[in-house]
């Protein structure tokens, strides 16, 4: 009934269930980039050198950090294989700006309605025929739009459309969703929003 199927119960080796990224071999570049990012996160957690004055302690800290980053990278590559097309960082920056601006709009919108003594709500449902392929991209779209003004994804219809619960159906909700989708599709390296 849902667009995303549960994992196949093959008795042998476990397989990925992400329908989008099955064939993509983890490229060394993506692994290196992620490993560097995770090592940075480790430095953030451990702050080596701040309270370990001696060199052997610092070296041990860094070695453990490298091992931890390697483990995290391995798990990350298996759970979320890198997409065949890399991310577009210009599009990502534009998307971030859009996201932060819309987050503010969403928060102010909800606060205005909550504090208004008349409680101006006009809730309703809307089916949005999402064009991102099922899988990580569509899940990211759902997560992002759940933070956008007036929209909350509640599930998938039989024909694959995402169903949204809207705070106010009089707002141009679908247009906003379309814009979010287009921006997100560019981040993932697709101009038109289809895989």
């Amino acid at each position: 009934m849902h667009a995303n199927q549960l994992p196949s119960r093959s008795p042998g080796r476990l397989k990925f269930t992400d329908d989008g990224a099955t064939a993509a071999a983890p490229s060394a570049l993506a692994a290196l980039a992620r490993g560097a990012g995770f090592f940075g996160f480790w430095l953030l957690l451990a702050r080596p050198g701040t309270d370990a004055p001696s060199t052997p302690d610092l070296a041990a800290d860094l070695v453990v950090g490298l091992l931890a980053a390697a483990a995290a990278t391995w798990v990350s590559l298996r759970l979320l294989p890198p997409a065949r097309k890399g991310l577009h960082f210009g599009a990502l920056a534009r998307f971030a700006v859009h996201f932060i601006r819309q987050s503010m709009v969403a928060g102010v919108d909800v606060a205005r309605r909550a504090f208004d003594p008349r409680l101006p709500l006009n809730p309703g449902y809307l089916a949005y025929p999402v064009r991102l392929a099922p899988g990580t991209g569509r899940a990211a779209f759902g997560a992002v739009t759940s933070l956008m003004p007036g929209t909350l994804p509640v599930g998938t219809a039989a024909d694959g459309a995402l169903i949204y619960h809207c705070l106010d159906v009089d707002q141009p909700v679908a247009a906003g969703l379309a814009r979010d989708e287009a921006l997100l599709a560019r981040v993932r390296g697709n101009g038109g929003g289809c895989r």
Binding site: A68, A71, A72, T73, S76, R138, G142, G155
Partner: peptide, 27 residues
Amino acid sequence: RSGSALPLLARVLPPFGILVGIHLVWA
């Protein structure tokens, strides 16, 4: 039962959880 929201979290969060867990043991 649904396939959309939880898998995203389960794909993104575990590496960070692993780093935090190993850090807790080491520290």
